[in-house]
């Protein structure tokens, strides 16, 4: 089977400081990879390099595009990369405000990606928006409301709908449950789990919360000071951590 994403030797420096270095892995269709680490571990830098938000200093990020097979997105032209990020890729930001247009209605937010790929029938766009709002458990009568009128959890779910409406194959998530109330987090994780399964999505999820990775990720990469210090099956890395830092991380989690 061809990997959906082949990452080779990604590195990003901030002057003399290491953002992330020597990161390589293959991600297959339907796989969810968690990237954990504490602040400063380089996990967000890595995610942004992979998603095309940052230019890495070295390495390749090869994505299996529908039309042209494996292409290195780092060397891709900007128009192509932007097109990719509107269709086959999705990015869920930690703060919904960064991933939504706050002055556009929920329906408009969800419909934007469709309109960006030339959907030109208002009725059809609206129907699809209603369908997706339903899938993220936002009631259809809120379709004309602005996200400013939504709670944090609803904004995050709207962000997810906006991203998934074009059926992307790869989703990047940056602390998707960060800043949300615990019960709201729970609901969001359930939703993500269901959608990932239903749509056969591949995902790369950056988080500092080990419970999130246990719930969502098949595989895990642990980062510290810009390096990947351990990786493998999620339950294996968490139940039988090998590296000193991983052991520290796992033992620090409160068991409730």
């Amino acid at each position: 089977m061809t990997p959906l994403l082949q990452v080779e030797g990604i590195a990003k420096m901030y002057g003399a400081r290491i953002g992330c270095t020597d990161v390589s892995f293959d991600l297959f269709p339907g796989e969810v990879m968690g990237v954990v680490g504490e602040s400063g571990s380089g996990k967000s830098t890595l995610l942004n390099c992979l998603a095309g938000h940052l230019q890495p200093d070295a390495g390749a990020v090869c994505f299996d595009t529908r039309a042209e097979g494996l292409r290195d997105t780092v060397t891709m032209s900007e128009p192509e990369r932007r097109m990719l990020s509107r269709t086959d890729w999705a990015f869920v930001h930690q703060h919904a405000r960064d991933g939504l247009r706050m002055n556009v209605s929920a329906g408009g937010n969800v419909g934007e990606r469709l309109m960006a790929v030339n959907a030109r029938h208002y009725g059809e766009i609206r129907d699809k928006a209603i369908d997706w709002l339903g899938r993220v458990e936002i009631s259809a009568d809120r379709i004309d409301d602005r996200p400013t009128a939504f709670s944090g959890g609803m904004q995050q779910r709207l962000q997810i709908a906006r991203n998934l409406v074009t059926g992307p194959r790869l989703v990047f998530m940056d602390e998707p449950t960060g800043g949300l109330d615990v019960s709201v987090q729970a609901r969001l994780l359930d939703l993500l789990r269901g959608l990932v399964r239903e749509m056969g999505l591949s995902a790369i999820i950056v988080t500092h919360d080990l419970a999130v990775v246990r719930l969502l990720a098949d595989r895990l990469m642990v980062m510290k000071d810009g390096h990947v210090i351990e990786s493998g099956l999620t339950d294996q890395v968490l139940d039988d951590p090998q590296h000193a830092y991983t052991q520290l991380l796992v033992s620090s989690v409160l068991q409730v």
Partner: peptide
């Protein structure tokens, strides 16, 4: 048993 299951390395 966990080693067989892949849960332990």
């Amino acid at each position: 048993m966990r080693m067989i299951y892949g849960n332990y390395l």
